[in-house]
Write a protein that binds this DNA or RNA. Structure first.
Lengths: 239, 239
DNA sequence: CCGGAAGTTTAGCCTAACCTAAAAAAAGAG
DNA sequence: CTCTTTTTTTAGGTTAGGCTAAACTTCCGG
């Protein structure tokens, strides 16, 4: 049974090694708010337990068992977030911390019961997909608003930001998963983006826009030319 | 912020020092499954933090802040148990352990939201009263079936047993809080009790009977004589 | 290809909670 | 009242998971 600390490391390494690269010691240390030296020590322990592969000076990546455990944790976290919002009335900006502490204490049965009550949800309140109990899980991504071409229309699918302030702000702008939007303008010099959302025009800073994943929609009657490449790319993997 | 270990000690000391006596080191050690020597060490730490008053060789009792904390924990535990049963479909024999680990991770806000969803329940699935968020809390008790006089009728109010086996057995016999029952016979030499419950006659061992708290009911038309003393005693405090 | 900056590991130290075994105090039996 | 048993405390040891500071790699600019 992994301890809380071990679980936190696994989750962190998982999310850092998304692009198949190894997670660096300092990146892990940063995320967890822990000194780098302590991380090295823990990586050695994790390697002994066979949860992590650690090549000194090059970083760590999860082994198969380590990844299985990490995915289980992510499932727990996301089901909990959804439950907190749907059943207990939390707002989406306040669920992260609560779920973070509960995920270490909850049993799989508890999580499965919550998922049942929720109707086996496919994603959490921020649009992050919820892994099933078993089986492979690959975290697919849509392109972000920050990298989309002007004129693209689409549906906001996921918000990759945990900062409560940012989330509250986005909710005010109606920028929540499921919302339709269109990128109208892009100010020069990495300036803010003008976006049409819910009948209104909004301005979104580039940084924030980079955390908004959008599924592009084929502009049915408009621009019948060459949007296909972009759209299909958006629907598949996109690191 | 008390650690899990500290919280467990506080809860244990609280429940052991019910009758105003101090909790002994070995009793605490037993409950927690910990060596006596370790308990002494922890009691010293708790005393330093002002949560416990520890007189060497005589035992420990909670200070006012310690008791406040313990009551908060009990509230969390019992609300969680109720929530697990009512919302997530657990049976009453399986909620204790799950609640025990969750109670350390749950925030007060989470608990309060659960209580709201449940309609501010007054007791947990075993009939144990749930303390309010604030204010004094005295754990009142009813007399147990084991000490009641033959012929007494009453309502089962609380089951003081955590053993899942026992709880499943009691549920089969319909011996759950709220059930009406009458003590019919008491076998000699501390033998089993014959009890009328839900139209059937059941036999209950004395040990088990001692964990069943019953609120006596005035036998309205029967035996109009001298049952009053017993009945009123049952409704008040009864350590 | 050399030297410093940045990143990583090692070494030594700390705390919370546990353990066991021995010493000390309290309680009960005769 | 004394002697033995039980209970409690003390003393010394362990493990997980942190920290800092120094030593070592790796990387990158010139």
């Amino acid at each position: 049974m992994p301890s809380m600390a071990v679980e936190d490391y696994l989750k962190t390494i998982y999310s850092l090694s998304a692009g198949a690269e190894a997670a660096s010691t300092s990146a892990i240390a940063d995320r967890l708010g822990i000194a780098a030296g302590s991380v090295t020590g823990m990586l050695k322990r994790l390697a002994e337990q066979g949860l992590v592969e650690h090549v000194p000076y090059y970083g760590a990546r999860l082994t198969a068992p380590g990844e299985r455990e990490a995915v289980r944790l992510i499932r727990r976290h996301r089901v909990l977030e959804m439950f907190l919002v749907q059943v207990l009335g939390y707002t989406w900006d306040r669920v992260h911390d609560e779920a973070d502490s509960l995920e270490h204490a909850a049993t799989d049965e508890l999580i499965d019961r919550m998922a049942t009550v929720l109707g086996e949800p496919a994603s959490d309140p921020h649009g992050a997909p919820i892994p099933a109990g078993e089986g492979r899980f690959v975290e697919a991504h849509f392109p972000t608003l920050g990298e989309m071409a002007v004129g693209t229309r689409g549906v906001l699918r996921r918000v990759q930001d945990e900062d409560p302030e940012a989330l509250r702000y986005l909710a005010e702008l109606e920028l929540v998963p499921g919302t339709e939007l269109e990128l109208l303008e892009r100010a020069p010099f990495n300036g803010p983006l003008k976006v049409q959302v819910g009948g209104r025009e909004r301005f979104v800073g580039l940084e924030l826009a980079r955390s908004l994943e959008v599924e592009a929609v084929d502009p049915v009657a408009r621009r019948p030319k060459k949007n296909k490449a972009k759209t299909s790319a958006g629907a598949t993997k996109h690191v």
